[in-house]
């Protein structure tokens, strides 16, 4: 009976929404009270005279399961790891947005997937615990084995996958040797980013695989300047988050309006302290203070989705076999 009551309560709640409804699938962190979702909803609804409804949870797996009958109009929060599969599904339509305002460190010409924020993989450390952080990726490999690292599993985490591609991009065919040198320093591998970062803040590890933007949270929200990203001259792997419009949307005008809204200054200004990432279309002087003082890499490494798809299995296998020794 309880279940029926729940269902009934919910049905009445959804029936009340107007016909001008835009349904957006988004990751959980995006729509939570600390994420940018609530403010973006408020700003967009003020200009569209519609009802924006977030649907948090899995993105691509859910859409692939639902197929053409998905009720999503737009999906936001996809990664480059899944764009190839998403594109081949034929479920997404061109975004039609002018890409000129983009301020990414790489060229972006994709007609389907529209970037809204980015960052780079980086090892983050605490200056009070690591006095001499490695100055390069090569130096990290040679660092003493009592430097404790925690990373994420490339088979269950996007940042973990970005790391194996990063190692592959820096060390090429010698990726496996690089992993063998890193292996003794890796305390453990976690399922996702949150667990790793928790271990790092609890003092279980000296450095954590995270993002170049992580220190900004500590600076802005906690007034703590002791967290830093170690910047390597070999370059850092580029991680971008994307939005896309569903081809089968029953509300194409509204979806287009939302896609255009993504690169607007209103939207972009919500990103830095909402999603703790760098806005994809906002000049640096408009970033919050804490972001402007971040150490960012000069060189950015990135594989196109086809290159990444070709390298992925091999890169994961190099990681797996080196760490399984």
């Amino acid at each position: 009976m309880k279940a029926l009551t729940f269902a009934a309560a919910f049905l009445t709640a959804t029936a009340a929404s107007a016909s001008g409804t835009l349904t957006v699938y988004a990751p959980d962190y995006f729509t939570s009270e600390w994420g940018p979702g609530p403010k973006i909803e408020e700003l967009f609804e003020a200009q569209c005279d519609c009802d924006l409804q977030w649907r948090p949870g899995d993105l691509l797996p859910r859409i692939l399961l639902e197929g053409a009958r998905t009720e999503a109009d737009v999906v936001i929060g996809l990664n480059t790891d899944v764009t190839k599969q998403a594109r081949e599904s034929g479920l997404f339509a061109p975004h039609g947005v002018d890409l000129a305002p983009l301020t990414l460190p790489i060229d972006w010409t994709d007609e389907v997937f529209l970037p809204f924020n980015y960052g780079h993989t980086a090892f983050v450390y605490d200056t009070t615990r690591v006095a001499n952080p490695p100055a390069s990726f090569a130096a990290l490999l040679e660092a003493p084995d009592d430097l404790r690292l925690v990373i994420q599993d490339p088979r269950s985490s996007i940042s973990g996958l970005a790391l194996v591609l990063w190692v592959r991009a820096v060390f090429g065919d010698e990726a496996q040797e690089a992993w063998a040198k890193l292996a003794p320093k890796i305390v453990t591998v976690t399922r996702g980013w949150s667990e790793s970062y928790g271990l790092f803040t609890d003092g279980e590890a000296d450095m954590v695989l995270s993002y170049t933007t992580s220190p900004a949270y500590h600076i802005i929200a906690e007034g703590d300047e002791t967290k830093k990203a170690a910047i390597f001259p070999e370059g850092h792997y580029f991680m971008v988050e994307l939005a896309a419009k569903l081809a089968g949307t029953d509300n194409p005008e509204l979806a287009d309006q939302f896609m255009a809204f993504i690169l607007s200054e209103d939207f972009q200004s919500m990103i830095a302290t909402g999603n703790w990432s760098i806005p994809a279309a906002l000049p640096k002087d408009k970033w919050p203070e804490g972001f402007q003082q971040l150490d960012l890499p000069e060189k950015v490494l990135f594989y196109s989705e086809d290159e990444a798809a070709g390298l992925r299995d091999e890169a994961i296998e190099a990681w797996r076999s080196a760490l399984s020794q």
Binding site: A13, R62, W193, G198, H218
Partner: peptide
């Protein structure tokens, strides 16, 4: 897969807080 947009559960909320750096 069955996320309710309005009603999170507490364990999910723990993950959300961690994901938002709020350890």
């Amino acid at each position: 897969l069955f996320a309710d947009p309005e009603r999170a559960t507490l364990p999910l909320q723990v993950y959300r807080l961690m994901g938002a750096y709020r350890m």
